[in-house]
Simulated scan of single mutants.
Amino acid sequence: MPISRVTKQYSVQDAKIAALTADPAGGAATYGTLIDVPGIQEMSISGDVEVKTLRGDNTKLASNAAITNIQVAVTHAKLSLDVLAAIVGGAVTDSGTGTAEVSTWDLSGDDANLPPFKLEGVTPPNGVDIVGGDLHWVLHKLTIASFPDLGFANEDFRVVSFTADADPLLANGKWISAVLNETAAAIA
């Protein structure tokens, strides 16, 4: 008997992104190395539906609806230069030695390429109705929708956030997947 398709969703324990490196029509999408989204706090998924109505003879004859966008908003507690490079572009370079080491993320007009990426988030074990199970939300092909919310906050912690729009993969048409596991599984 299959597991229940109905569950609660409690918290988010982990999230990772990976650069989309290939998306051949009719083939298999491939991704780069997983990058941790540090201190994940929230992953909120929404969508837009466009409805067209056909009218005639002074009455409604029919209507049709289509999903026109799926969007995710992410908030995380810690800044990651690698995440910035993966979602906006640019490059991270390391320099110096010993106590003079420096990591720098630089973004220029030439490399602000807004590359496509995958995002996957997961509940903690038991964050679903299945004891020992978990739920993964996977957005297969995202592009940043607005520049990430960065900076400082006076006498307080500053969290990082971004929004991204989903596109269907050319490889298989997938936009989003919800994967409910009977046994909790790490993001892979």
Rank of each mutant, 00 (worst) to 15 (best):
M1R: 12
P2S: 10
P2F: 02
P2T: 08
I3D: 13
S4V: 10
R5L: 11
R5G: 11
V6R: 11
T7C: 06
K8T: 12
Q9N: 12
Q9D: 05
Y10L: 15
Y10T: 15
S11G: 14
S11T: 14
V12L: 05
D14Q: 11
K16Q: 14
K16S: 07
A18H: 05
A19G: 03
T21K: 03
A22D: 09
A22V: 01
D23M: 09
A25S: 15
G26L: 11
A29Q: 05
Y31L: 01
T33S: 13
T33W: 05
I35Y: 06
I35T: 13
I35V: 14
D36I: 07
D36L: 10
V37P: 03
E42Y: 00
E42I: 00
I45T: 13
G47D: 11
V49G: 02
V49E: 08
E50I: 09
E50N: 12
V51Q: 10
K52R: 15
K52S: 15
L54V: 08
R55M: 03
T59H: 10
L61G: 05
N64I: 15
A65R: 10
A65P: 01
A66F: 03
I67V: 15
N69V: 01
V72R: 02
V72T: 07
V72P: 02
V74H: 05
H76P: 01
L81N: 06
V83Y: 00
L84K: 05
L84G: 04
L84N: 04
A85K: 10
G89R: 05
G89P: 02
G90K: 04
G90L: 08
A91K: 14
A91C: 01
A91F: 02
A91E: 14
V92M: 04
T93N: 06
D94E: 15
D94I: 10
D94N: 15
S95G: 13
G98R: 06
T99M: 12
E101Y: 11
E101R: 15
E101I: 15
T104E: 13
W105K: 00
D106K: 13
D106Y: 00
L107T: 05
L107I: 13
S108F: 03
D110T: 13
D110S: 14
D110R: 05
D111N: 15
N113Q: 12
P116L: 04
F117T: 00
K118W: 07
L119P: 00
G121Y: 03
V122N: 01
T123F: 06
T123S: 10
P125I: 03
P125Y: 06
N126H: 11
V128F: 07
D129T: 12
V131M: 11
G132W: 14
D134F: 02
L135C: 11
W137A: 09
V138G: 00
L142C: 06
A145T: 01
F147K: 09
P148M: 04
L150Q: 04
A153L: 04
N154C: 04
D156I: 00
R158D: 11
V159P: 02
V160M: 11
S161H: 07
T163L: 01
T163H: 01
A164T: 01
A166K: 01
A166T: 03
L169G: 03
A171P: 01
N172M: 06
S177C: 02
V179N: 09
V179M: 06
L180V: 03
L180I: 06
N181R: 14
N181H: 15
E182S: 15
A185E: 14
A186E: 14
